[in-house]
Simulated scan of single mutants.
Amino acid sequence: MLYVIVIAAVIIFWLVAVDRPVLKVIFKDGTLHKVKGHFPPTFKHNVSEIAEVTPFSGEMKVYQQRTGMKLVFTEQVPKKVQQRIRNVFPHQGFKSSGDKTKKNR
């Protein structure tokens, strides 16, 4: 019985503590250094263009929430660049895993 409680505690800890973004992008000196996750092509093009015009280093993560997507930037990314990336973010390009709308029958 004790092992069931331990396994449940480990699973709950994993669900709460582990960082699980939908998309993670690392920038170094105005270039896309590392990409992990689904990166829509038009968004990737726009972000690369922003990074070329205003070179910066840092990290961007996109999280899926119930209310929609959330963009999180590290402190190294300037506020003006963050806003430009938020302006070109395609909310329709990131699809949720389930259909959350009610259908009339």
Rank of each mutant, 00 (worst) to 15 (best):
F43K: 00
L23N: 01
Q83Y: 10
T67L: 14
K28I: 05
T101H: 15
K103I: 13
I12W: 11
F39Y: 15
I11G: 01
V6Q: 03
T67W: 12
V18Y: 11
K102M: 13
K102R: 15
Q64K: 01
Q92D: 05
G37H: 07
G68A: 08
V6M: 08
V88A: 05
M1W: 15
R105M: 13
Y3T: 13
K61P: 02
E49Q: 12
E52I: 14
V88K: 03
V16T: 12
A51N: 11
F94K: 02
K61L: 08
G93Y: 04
K102I: 13
V6I: 15
T31W: 10
K24F: 06
V62N: 03
R105W: 11
M69G: 02
S97Y: 06
V18S: 07
R86N: 02
E49P: 09
Q82C: 10
A51P: 12
R66Y: 08
L71Y: 06
P55M: 05
G68I: 08
G98S: 09
I50Q: 04
L71C: 01
V4Q: 15
V81S: 07
N87Y: 00
G98T: 12
F43I: 06
P41C: 04
F43D: 01
K79R: 15
S57D: 00
F13W: 12
V72E: 05
G37D: 07
K100V: 13
N104G: 05
D29N: 14
V81N: 03
K70F: 12
V25Y: 03
K100P: 06
K36A: 12
K95C: 06
L15Y: 07
